[in-house]
Design a binder for these strands. Structure first.
Lengths: 209, 209
DNA sequence: GTCTATAACCGGATAGAC
DNA sequence: GTCTATCCGGTTATAGAC
């Protein structure tokens, strides 16, 4: 029909794939389902992607790129480290509750990548990207509220990702909001215990043990 | 060939399925691959299972049943709550390191069940089973080493499962043993902070806040 | 570049002989 | 009860017209 550039077509297919994967799972994201979602023909798919696996690969890469745009808004009203962490967790949980399939899809994509040797180090990169995002948030929170982390921030970021991932897995399985709230309280308490009041003249890294 | 009872045949197929799922993932566990692993014909499969999905369902149920047999041995030498938790975590990590695909398979099975409405509450049950096992270990550890949990043990169990799941996801993605060790130290410290010295005359539940 | 049509294959499930 | 042979729907990928 209308002539589209290969780049635009790739973008649309990746976006459509993400939608279908969230709705039907990686298994249900067949090339047919994806092109139907994108409103194009099956042949057009193979004009821009050599294979379905290559598309899945690029979907993961896209997710990693886009996820960097996290919101720092929720931190602005926090009065204490604990509150800053708790507000950030609330914002995440709100996202998780609104689109559970989206988060489930992230796990499915990671596991799919782990099973396919062609995906190489992508699972590793995906997890590193999560930690990098967590680190940014932790540093932004510290700057915003005025405190420093008493451990290397990379360590704190890893612990945060571990706990948030675990909480997500649990909530996806049992959909227990109250239990998730309990876990978030625990996370907030744990991270708050890793902070020290800010020193004006020293950078936060210099304060770390 | 040799005549087998339906029950025995079911057992063998479930066992074979578990092997194939660990090796190839849920996606790769086709009926053909499973019967090849079990050394029987495709028709035999459908003689005892109405469908592949029903087999997957039963595989999950089997896993839940068998997992109860956890080892309490590692706790015996512990001298403190923190050490007890750390030893338990070491034992788990040893298992994870030895058969990573097995743990990956557990996640895949849970996610597969989440995507299929026919599986009903099975994901919920699966997670509840993990927590129940964690609870048993926590109670055994307290009894063995001689301390009590200062929070409801169900809460502690949930936090433990959340952290262990998160650690597992992270390690499967990046295979970073040192980072996992750091996380296990954190878990041990966190749980140790939730203990109080045992009172001889009161049960541990009576001591909980 | 984009489409329709089809090749080539694979998977779950079944028929029917033994 | 157990097997071989087959059906049938669905999947990726490609051929070839426009």
């Amino acid at each position: 029909m209308t002539r589209l550039s290969a780049e635009l077509r790739r973008d649309r297919l990746i976006q459509a794939a993400l939608t279908v994967i969230a709705r039907e799972g990686v298994h249900g994201a067949t090339t047919r389902a994806i092109v139907a979602e994108a409103g194009m023909s099956l042949a057009s798919f193979h004009y821009v992607f050599p294979s379905r696996d290559r598309l899945i690969h690029d979907v993961i890469a896209r997710v990693l790129r886009d996820q960097q745009q996290v919101s720092f808004e929720s931190l602005e009203t926090a009065g204490s480290p604990r509150e800053a962490v708790r507000l950030g967790l609330d914002a995440y949980f709100e996202l998780l509750s609104r689109e559970p399939e989206r988060e489930l899809a992230m796990f499915e994509l990671m596991h799919y990548a782990m099973r396919n040797p062609d995906f190489g180090r992508l699972p590793r990169v995906q997890h590193a990207s999560y930690r990098a995002t967590a680190r940014e948030l932790l540093e932004a929170g510290a700057a915003q509220v005025g405190f420093a982390w008493s451990r290397p921030v990379d360590e704190v970021a890893r612990l945060l990702v571990v706990m948030v991932d675990g909480m997500t897995v649990a909530w996806l399985a049992d959909r227990d909001d109250a239990a998730a709230s309990l876990v978030m309280d625990f996370i907030a308490d744990s991270l708050a215990a890793m902070t020290v009041p800010a020193m004006q003249t020293l950078s936060s890294t210099a304060v770390a043990r």
